[in-house]
Write a protein that binds this DNA or RNA. Structure first.
Lengths: 111, 111
DNA sequence: TTATTCAGTTACTTTTCGTAACCCATGCAC
DNA sequence: GTGCATGGGTTACGAAAAGTAACTGAATAA
């Protein structure tokens, strides 16, 4: 090492990683993404597949994810209008990360 | 399909996945784990490597992670006592998941 | 003796969350 | 029409969690 290194160099956490976890690390976000990885869903379906999430927070998270470019909201002009939430390319590429978390959960969650 | 399936079967989200994201999906948790993946650290070092986390929340998260079995707190009885936080086996196996999130962040975070 | 460092807590303010009720447009049965 | 149900979403409000910053306490260095 040529530099005059002192006791301990503090390596700051990667700011892109921070950005990612600021998005994903809020209540319900991971579960919403996970639910949408199997295909677009109506808000009512998401509410049913994630037992204890509330309508208020679901819609809040969905619009944050939409702003971030992870989720796309589509309105189908049918007889009763139908609204679906699906993942964008950006959202779908979270698949491998979610799969790793699933693997970890399967290994360590005892219940 | 032999069962008399109605309009849409709602597939509930895996409860183990929910358990995992209930742990990881709170402010700062992912970043703390990420910081510890490179080796045990003192709380002061973690504070410096994660710019805007507060001491209060860091210690709160660390004790939650300790309770969950992800982090181990070690006290070294040196002249001035030294306390280090490191990952357990359970914590270290989060590495692949964190790596996937890092990859995703590198790909999609533009800054 | 005074000052500094590290680990952690406390007091207080601001956000966010959970619960539950509500709004509104459409569809349908009567 | 009137009444009721459904889907999508918002509002109100109390409870919990996070941010900020100051503080304790032990132990060491000046």
């Amino acid at each position: 090492m040529s530099t005059n290194a002192k006791a301990k160099e503090v390596v700051p956490l990667c700011s892109k990683f921070q950005w990612a976890f600021t998005l994903l690390g809020r209540p319900w976000t991971g579960m919403i993404v996970r639910a949408l990885l199997s295909g677009p869903k109506r808000s009512k379906e998401i509410l049913e597949s994630i037992p204890s999430i509330s309508s208020r927070v679901l819609h809040q998270r969905l619009s944050e994810l939409e702003d971030a470019g992870i989720v796309q909201r589509t309105i189908y002009q049918e007889k009763p209008v139908r609204v679906e939430y699906g993942l964008t390319e950006m959202g779908r590429t979270l698949g491998p990360a979610m799969d790793e978390i699933q693997k970890w959960a399967d290994r360590w969650c005892n219940e």
